[in-house]
Amino acid sequence: MNREERRPERLNRFALSEIIPAPKDFIFFDADKCTGCSGCVVICPMDLWKLREGRARLAEDYREKCMECGSCYIACESGAIDFTYPPGGSGVVYKFA
C-alpha cells in the first residue's frame, strides 16, 4: 500500500467499523428540550447529529453506525438526549480494541 492510499481522508470510519444493528432504539431525543447548542453535532465521532432549523436531528440509520460512545449524551446540557445501551448481543463489535 502506498502512502497516498493511507491518507486519512481515505480512512472510511464506517467501512472500518463493525456493528450488529440494535433491534430497537437506544438513543432517545426530545426535540422540545433541544436548545440547538450543537454540542452533539460537534462531538459525535461518526457525524450522526445534524442541526436543522435550530434543532439537533439524529441520523435515522444511527443504529447501523453508532459506536455507543455516549458523547452526545454527555455533551447535551439541556437533557434532550437520553442514552441507554443497545440490547445485549447487539451494537458495536470491537475485535482490536
Partner: peptide
C-alpha cells in the same frame, strides 16, 4: 493497513 475504527469515552 487500516483495520478498525474505534470511538469511546
Amino acid at each position: 493497513r487500516p483495520r478498525e475504527w474505534q470511538a469511546h469515552m
